[in-house]
Amino acid sequence: MLNSNGFTVTESLISLSILIIITTAWIPLYSLISQEKQIHSDKRIITDQLHDELQLVLWDNNTLLPKVSEKTIGATPVKLSFKLTKESLIKGCAQWNNIAQRSEEVCLYGYQN
């Protein structure tokens, strides 16, 4: 006669192994998503700061170009550089290493009257 009052050991082990497989797949995925979220947030903040610095260079007609400076934005050291292009545009670039230790660069252009 079979006892049908609860789970068997086999059923419990199978459900536990499925739970472990799902958990071990989810943890690295969640970590990667969190890291990418931080990378994009930092890029947005650095791009905003680059825009503000480029505006200052565009408004000040006495700025000598090329201009290079180091700035810490958040906890990230960023190299800001501004130079005049052949098309009479001012090119502002920000270079930094993100939290994944990959080098990133973003550039914006502006026209000085």
Rank of each mutant, 00 (worst) to 15 (best):
S41G: 14
S34Y: 09
P77V: 01
P28D: 09
P28G: 02
L64G: 10
K86A: 12
S17F: 08
W59E: 15
L65P: 02
W26H: 07
L19Q: 06
E53W: 09
K83C: 00
I21R: 02
T23D: 01
T10N: 03
S41F: 07
L19C: 07
K79G: 02
L58I: 06
T85E: 03
S17N: 05
T23Y: 03
F82S: 10
V68F: 05
H51K: 08
E87K: 03
T76W: 12
N5L: 07
E87G: 00
K37Y: 10
K67H: 08
Q49N: 10
Q38E: 11
E36L: 10
H51M: 07
P66I: 03
L65G: 06
K79M: 12
L64H: 01
I39S: 01
D60S: 08
T72Y: 07
K86V: 08
N5Q: 03
D60E: 11
K71S: 05
T63L: 11
T76H: 04
S4I: 09
N61R: 15
I39F: 09
A75S: 14
I39K: 14
I73N: 03
T24A: 03
W59T: 06
I39E: 10
L13G: 04
T23M: 00
S17K: 00
I73A: 03
E11L: 04
I18T: 12
I14P: 00
F7K: 13
L65Y: 10
D52A: 13
I20V: 12
L16G: 07
P66A: 04
D60K: 12
D52V: 04
E87I: 00
Q35D: 13
I73R: 06
L13R: 12
I73Y: 07
R44G: 13
T63Y: 09
V9C: 01
N5A: 04
W59H: 15
K86L: 08
T23N: 02
D60V: 04
L32S: 14
H51T: 15
N3E: 15
N5D: 10
T72G: 01
E11W: 00
I46L: 10
D52P: 04
K43F: 05
I18V: 14
K37R: 13
L16V: 08
K71M: 08
H51N: 12
L56W: 02
P66N: 01
W59Y: 06
T47S: 15
T85P: 08
L56R: 06
P77F: 05
S31I: 03
R44Q: 14
E53L: 08
L58K: 13
N5R: 13
L58M: 07
I14L: 14
K79W: 03
T85H: 01
